[in-house]
Write a protein that binds this DNA or RNA. Structure first.
Lengths: 237, 237
DNA sequence: GTAAAACATTGATATGGATCAAGCATTCGT
DNA sequence: ACGAATGCTTGATCCATATCAATGTTTTAC
């Protein structure tokens, strides 16, 4: 038991600490952060981490796995607002109104660290580097969203989506050219404002052009230049 | 000259201070904030407050006027990412990469307060209420963006847009039922991913249904319930 | 005050992607 | 290991909205 406790996850030995908070915090600073972080939580596929309208208490650092966040609109249709990958921090949307505006559902069995927000702010006031980093992460969250050009064609949107996922994996030191999409075609279509059929056809078309290789949910980007061109060109070419 | 200086704008007498930072800061706290705030700047219609890729130095509080922010995509087409109204804070997008991701252009002659970011963070670490408020404002910024349902019909998008503008004016104590749109039809269309012609036709159609009254750029919302229904209903009714 | 430019409206036509329909492939639950 | 449910693909058709075209209206600049 003691042995187990000794090795339980904390910020100092957490393998993603430098990823979710990649700021040069000293060991003593990290251990302060560790003190306020609640223990790890496992969320199984399809389970919810927090609910729309639920009280906002904490941010969540994704240690492994992935989530989609969505709002339910008036006809209780799900509208996906974003996907969240390992090493990212989740829950910023709820700060303003102190309640969640979205529901976060696990796309696969996932592990998160719960970071009580009030305590985090108190600590941030004492550790300038932590404060700066929090603002930076939140800003990056905003930037990620911005890329989705609403007036883009279906192919442009899908190309931007693939670039975005790819670069986020790259940021985490994972392969940017070959990865598994953890969400369904329907999720992708919903997020991009397309029909599933369109997503399916576009994957096939992009494969036909030698831009990507699609094997079910496994995507290989064969030609980053062509992908880049696909994000901005207006018509087929 | 002395008289002029005595009355120059500062945070304690600024009429929108409680709006842009509506937190109960004491007089002494406000005067600390005032010390770091650079003097007012006037930006004329069509002029730029900051440029895409420009170095990030400061946030800007809009005292009066309004702005659009946009990215230039690869074919140097403007893509509007948001509109910013009086009392709102501008520039959060640039924190992450320490450079602006968008250009901010004045839609009308506007007045802003420049808030150097580094100094603001230092002060926020000392004033917990200011820190909390900053996170809250940034989160609200994120929430504002989120509303735009990408898979919504043209009419739904326009209805959501009008609701959004209306509620933001309301937050500032201005009329939520009658206001002037400071942006062109082209800007609205660009932002919503529609053609200007479609925006024009929809305004007319919504007026025909008694939802709104349109007089060039002056909008009166005649029936908030009908507007609400328009944001979610799928087809004409 | 006038000409030019920018902005807005209205109508006719074309099309990208939705929707409908059907069947196949994979994953899940027991 | 099996059947059922879910996810994915492909084809045919249709419609919401873009695009093209023309004209009217307001604002800007000299």
């Amino acid at each position: 038991m003691l042995e187990y406790k000794k090795f339980k996850a904390n910020c100092m030995n957490c393998s993603i600490a430098e990823l979710c908070l990649p700021v040069a915090l000293s060991d003593s600073e990290l251990s302060q952060l560790d003190k306020i972080i609640k223990k790890r939580r496992i969320i199984h596929k399809g389970e919810e981490l927090f609910y729309q309208d639920g009280k906002f208490m904490a941010l969540y650092a994704i240690r492994s796995g992935s989530f989609k966040t969505y709002i339910l609109n008036q006809d209780s249709q799900e509208q996906i607002t974003s996907f969240h990958l390992p090493g990212e921090l989740l829950g910023f949307d709820a700060i303003s109104k102190e309640k969640h505006l979205v529901t976060a559902k696990a796309l696969e069995t996932s592990s998160v660290c719960e970071v009580p927000f009030t305590e985090l702010l108190t600590l941030a006031a004492q550790l300038p580097k932590l404060q700066t980093q929090l603002f930076r992460l939140m800003s990056r969250e905003m930037d990620n969203e911005m890329k989705l050009q609403i007036n883009a064609s279906a192919e442009q949107r899908l190309a931007v989506f693939l670039q975005n996922i790819s670069s986020r994996y790259k940021q985490r030191g994972l392969s940017s050219s070959k990865f598994i999409l953890t969400m369904t075609r329907q999720d992708i279509a919903n997020y991009l404002g397309l029909a599933t059929e369109t997503v399916s056809r576009l994957f096939k078309a992009m494969q036909g052009k030698g831009v990507i290789q699609v094997e079910r949910r496994e995507i290989s980007i064969l030609d980053f230049d062509k992908l880049q061109i696909a994000t901005c060109q207006h018509k087929a070419m």
